[in-house]
Amino acid sequence: PRPDVQPLPPGTHLLFAQSGKIEHVPLEGYDVKKDQAKAVLHLPEKVVIGVAYDCVEKMVYWTDITTPAISRASVQGGEPTPIITADLESPEGIAVDHLGRTLFWTDSMRDRIEVASLDGTKRRVLFDTDLVNPRAIIADPVHGYLYWADWNRQAPKIEASYMDGTNRKVLVKDDLGLPNALTYDPQSSLLCWADAGTHKVECMNPTRSDRRTVLEGIQYPFSMVSFGKNLYYTDWKRDAVVVVDRATGKESDQFQPQKRSRLYGIATAYAQCPTGRNYCAVN
């Protein structure tokens, strides 16, 4: 018997992975409703690393390094279903293109970035060169871009390409340490990252080169999402989700679950899909 999903109440939530479960905490406006945090899914035998959300079918997707596998489950109550189990070693970051109905992930042992349909079919390798420790991966379906970070200690970098794998380029390579966490906010067109080596949160518009520091002196970021004016990142040292106001560059809140252990991937479960049409649908 498999543990089932506890249906998510309406509204927007943060989903994050911690020690054999995926938890949710509701957002009211931009505030974290800490007292309403609850497990969405118990996966007691698994080590869940990356979490992504599909706002169309209201499904949570995750990578797990124990099986290893990529699985999904409906947040309205459903069975966890593995969709990719073969040829994986250390699947970490995961991103959903809700418009193109595809899934992207990084594998830090196979040193690859791969893509497949949301049901796991039509799998294809996008990149298998110049990758050492790829982790975070983000899709911007409206503009058709993919972003990822590689924390290779010798040469950390943040890269971009079109979602079909063409037009690959390095966006950032200077003054990076361990860029574990990466997020893109379509409203402000800002790509932001949190770095466990430089201990900074930085942002830039990927089409311009206007990189700027949002916050310094952070501890150990692992994964990050943007939602409206805020950034929410998981921290390995604090065992918490930390809330940062992007405009003021100040930490505004934190949520530390009762269970003390590292927090991994984080995603936003939107009440509704962000508006926008797919790049491919337009062209």
Partner: peptide, 23 residues
């Protein structure tokens, strides 16, 4: 499923009955 799962295992442990080690 009516399965019982421990939710606050001692530090470093996890699993249904806290029988496994954390990552």
């Amino acid at each position: 499923t009516r399965e019982v799962v421990c939710t606050n295992c001692p530090t470093g442990t996890t699993g249904k009955r806290c029988e496994l080690c954390d990552d």
